[in-house]
């Protein structure tokens, strides 16, 4: 049962993009979000190179003695990916610098805590009350205990 080579590589690249995106959405620590962004970027690069790939062709390097009937891999996506890799590292360095500034300003890199602090700061700067619902239940359990409720409903 031979799997075609293209299908295998496409599955790998799409899996890499999927793992990166799901990890970005699921992880709370901002540094891990950055790492997952790098994963998704590598998967995207792999997809771009795969778009110009041909099974029966050679690397796009001009040596002068290319046999007749042999074609080359498309070099345009490869040039694009070459640029994309370098830009990706620059973006990672920028993100690390931003994380250092965030850690210095807020003292944490947890996403939920940072969001809460950001909302508090915005409310304080705008001079408005914190955005809370009046129906917010107090305590940990929003619903009363089932036995008490049953007695209340069916006396």
């Amino acid at each position: 049962m031979p799997i075609p080579l293209d299908t295998l590589f496409f599955a790998g690249a799409l899996g890499l993009v999927a793992i990166g995106v799901v990890g970005m959405l699921a992880s709370r620590h901002l540094f891990r979000v950055l790492l997952c962004l790098g994963l998704a970027e590598a998967g995207g690069n792999l997809l771009l190179v795969l778009s110009g790939y041909r099974w029966d062709s050679v690397a796009p390097i001009l040596t002068g003695d290319l046999p007749v009937g042999v074609s080359m891999v498309d070099p345009v996506p490869q040039a694009l990916v070459l640029t994309s890799i370098v830009i990706g590292v620059g973006m990672e360095a920028l993100a690390v610098a931003l994380l250092i500034r965030i850690r210095r300003a807020y003292g944490t890199l947890d996403g939920h805590a940072l969001l809460a602090r950001l909302r508090e700061d915005l409310d304080e700067r705008l001079g408005v009350a914190p955005d809370r619902s009046e129906d917010l239940p107090k305590g940990h359990a929003p619903f009363p205990a089932p036995a008490a409720k049953e007695q209340e409903v069916n006396p």
């Binding site: 190179v49 790939y53 891999v73 890799i85 610098a97």
Partner: peptide, 27 residues
């Protein structure tokens, strides 16, 4: 394997080396 040796060279040097160095120094 996909016949892109220049991209492979850049990915190995920049993606595996420089990126890990930047991330490690950041951590």
């Amino acid at each position: 394997v996909l016949r892109a040796p220049d991209v492979a060279m850049t990915e190995a040097a920049v993606g595996a080396g420089l990126s890990a160095a930047v991330l490690g120094l950041g951590v």
